[in-house]
Nucleic acid binder design. Sequence first.
DNA 1: AAAAATAGGGACAAAGCTGTCCCTATTTTG
DNA 2: CAAAATAGGGACAGCTTTGTCCCTATTTTT
Lengths: 217, 217
Amino acid sequence: MAMSEQTSKHTQVLIIEDQHLMRLALIHELQAALPASIVHGAANITIALDLLESQQFDLVVIDPGLPGYDPKSQDDRFDVVQVVIELSPDAIHFVVTGSDTEEEWEHCQKLGVVGYLAKNNIRPGALVDVLQEVAERGYSVRLSNETTAPPEFYHSGLTPREQEILGWMRQRPSGISRKEIYEQLGERFDIDAASAEKYYKRARAKLLKTGLLPKGL
Amino acid sequence: MAMSEQTSKHTQVLIIEDQHLMRLALIHELQAALPASIVHGAANITIALDLLESQQFDLVVIDPGLPGYDPKSQDDRFDVVQVVIELSPDAIHFVVTGSDTEEEWEHCQKLGVVGYLAKNNIRPGALVDVLQEVAERGYSVRLSNETTAPPEFYHSGLTPREQEILGWMRQRPSGISRKEIYEQLGERFDIDAASAEKYYKRARAKLLKTGLLPKGL
DNA sequence: AAAAATAGGGACAAAGCTGTCCCTATTTTG
DNA sequence: CAAAATAGGGACAGCTTTGTCCCTATTTTT
């Protein structure tokens, strides 16, 4: 019988978050940010504690606003964080919350948390930057931040690439030519600028065919 | 110049939610639930009001916990909902919140809301049921609910189908054979039970190759 | 012991997405 | 006006995912 290789080369990640869609989104983000990782999800503290006792993790992401704890009680919130940290002393710990405060971050930091992220300040792809910042500076904080992002527009007939390119193009500041955007996108996605242009054009064509495309073209 | 067809056959949906990942997840869910829909996202109330003034919507989903409003103030939360409803009187309105209460639902109902959903009670695919319930009964309420879901396990090498099938299989109650699960899955996804079996096996093989698969096989 | 379930594969067609290259008009900008 | 940018496509190779069908051992139930 082969020995079970508990010490695999994969990064083990645990997400503790009770909101299903948010947990799935975080899992998705973490997988994208750490391609060789295995990501576990726990919808409540009971499952989380089971997992923490059964194996080691390299990174644990905690939402302290779990059911069974009084969301208005700071003590309850810190309790969750503290217990998790005690059970995974070698891991890196992030806190993700929908109601962030400067004071809570400071308290969490004393408990050993190195990442403190407001849910409304986590954009797709942002965790890459957070992880890098933690690696460089030892911590990363993103408090709540009212965004001025443009409205989004999702049409079921578009492929992910087309959605993505279109999203970027719609944020084009005035004075910047489309061509420049194509080049930026080419660099960002590591594709040809011409391909980015192609995607944009196809997306546009699809929207025209169905009869409506957003104002900013 | 062709006349712009404002009255297209597509269902127009608007999601007002400040948490980016949650907004994207909701957009995704809505597109899956309403395949012929065009879904718009607004990260704050300003964008939302712009959109509401510029066009009509058939369904508006509101998270009243937006920045700029005191999350502890019930009045502020209701204000958001009320303003949105006044600007889209012909639409159906859902409220999605991370801090739900029975009282808030009752108040929202008086304002015209027909769907009241706690964020921790929205699972992937659940909006289909919510929409159907609204169509049949006129309203749908899903208050906060502590789940007893099993731990989740996501491995980057698996395809979405494999992840999905594996997730279902891991919830198999004792006394139910795998074969029965295959049949349920076949029905649910409208594929052959044999295909479901194939996916499970391939997922299992991949996990074995990389050295670790979760306890429950 | 016979029947059913399970593990662990192979082969393959259809479809969709990605990415590249190339083309011609028309419009905008310097 | 000349040059650059833009609109609006066609063709195509490569890849992954999906879904179906088929196969042989081994284990578990009955």
